[in-house]
Design a protein around this nucleic acid. Structure first.
Lengths: 118, 118
DNA sequence: CTCCATGGTTTCTAAATGAAACTATATTGC
DNA sequence: GCAATATAGTTTCATTTAGAAACCATGGAG
């Protein structure tokens, strides 16, 4: 099996395209803590729209990274949780958000320097 | 300093948006090996267009992750290299592509299962 | 004098995104 | 009984973005 993300037709490209996504990273980060319901996710991930959250959850579910459980309460409760496969990914995803938080000042500084010299 | 990627207005969101991008991941992965010229990158990253490569290199340079050096050869040579700041990120980014290559089969299997039951 | 290689920018079309409104069900409050 | 609220979405439409392809400028090789 020769998988290589640098080859366009390689299926790993599809996976990378799914994971290398701002919203997917944030959703997986939240679900890593505990199972969460739809609107709770929506509130916790500031700025995400219902449509995009719905789409991304569907894609993550299809990829086997997230599970969806419906409870016959009133109103109906839908709970999303991370799967064992998804769990193997969360440390990597968490490293991304951690890097962003740790290095934001260096990045902002670089941007200002770049903008001044241009 | 209270940085939190889950807050929309937080500058870390901008960084996450830049990094959580398929092309950025692939570009940083290539530059991590060695400095590379524009068209060489274009050839090695199958499927990327000149426009998108040009845009993403400009953004990565602005963020201080990549440096751009022009050599007065004929035709002009432009070499892109990773910066020390960018270097602190490459292991995380490499983990993403590695995950994709390692787990693609589980993902494809999950997709088939999902599609059959739908 | 035309072709190729360099590193881009420009143009145009097609796909994706985001904001907002709409759907449907059922409980609570007045 | 009637409006408001909560659940989890879908739909619609305007704006953004991405991708494909063409174009630009330079200069050496054939």
């Amino acid at each position: 099996m020769e998988y290589d993300v640098y080859v366009q037709a390689c299926p790993t490209r599809l996976v990378l395209d799914r994971l290398a996504d701002k919203w997917a990273v944030l959703v997986l980060g939240k679900l890593d803590e505990k199972p969460v319901r739809f609107n709770q996710l929506r509130r916790e991930i500031d700025g995400i729209s219902q449509k995009v959250l719905s789409q991304i959850l569907k894609k993550l579910e299809r990829d086997g990274l997230v599970s969806r459980s419906v409870f016959a309460t009133v109103p109906v409760t839908v709970e999303y949780a991370i799967t064992p496969l998804g769990r193997t990914l969360t440390s990597t995803v968490a490293a991304l958000t951690r890097w962003a938080e740790d290095n934001i000042e260096a990045v902002l500084e670089a941007q200002q320097k770049y903008d001044r010299s241009a």
